[in-house]
Amino acid sequence: MDKDPILEVEKLNIRFNTPVGEVHAVRDVSFTMGREKLAIVGESGSGKSQTGRAILGLTPGKVTAQKLAFHGQSLLGLAEQQWRRIRGKRIAMVMQDPKYSLNPVMTIGDQLLEAARDIKEGAAARQHALGMLAAVRIRDPERVFRAWPHELSGGMGQRAMIAMMLMAEPELLIADEPTSALDVTVRLQVLAILDDLVKTRHMGLIFISHDLNLVRTFCDRALVMYAGQVLEKLTASELTEAKHPYTRGLLACPPEIDHRRSRLPVLQRDPSWMEPVGS
């Protein structure tokens, strides 16, 4: 990791006020990351997406933290005007499903240009957009530039969305299940694009996923979340040697192609996993 971290998070907490009382969705999450591929894994409701959104100030919950800093600059209590200088420009986010995240009544090209409106204009912006589409391995950038979202397949739409997020050349990309809606081969091709970008553009990537096998083979490090807390921090390639029974349980659950079992092991949830970590 670099000496100068991209992102520092210390004791991040997110709370929601609901009619049935306060929900403490993220509890004391701390991590530091540089130019690397950091995974946040866990089941639905574990707080992984809210953690990602909090970094961009996009969660509707109440965010508190001892430190939430991007290149040393605190992200806590920023005014909307200050957020606009960061969101989409220096930190960008790719959502799960291109069907719902692309504007259906705007061409892909117009959406790409809009993403870089404050940075580049006119012919230069157009050239830049076509270059980005080519960078995410779209074979015919001119056609996709003119296309409407409904004319693209899921894989194409997701690539167009990644291109859009990269228009401003962000330093940190938060990808929330960016490939879950894609077919396996397309999924790997999209990941290869992200991998390239991390290497060539020295970008940091937060990869939010529920797929431990993918994280193990794709990311550098992994945070395992359960009930709003980070239970374990691991080197991704060493996920199979995880200590925590929750991580081990998650790894054992999915059916495997070359290791067939008559029954699948079921996760036995221990109430102690809910208790504050480290106390």
Binding site: L188, L191, A192
Partner: peptide, 26 residues
């Protein structure tokens, strides 16, 4: 399937893709 004895190139590619991220394979 579980012993990897698939004959068609497409099936084999699907099988490789299911095993996780691998730059050489992609």
């Amino acid at each position: 399937l579980s012993e990897g004895r698939l004959l068609h190139a497409y099936s084999r590619q699907l099988l490789i893709a299911s095993r996780g991220y691998d730059t050489a394979a992609i």
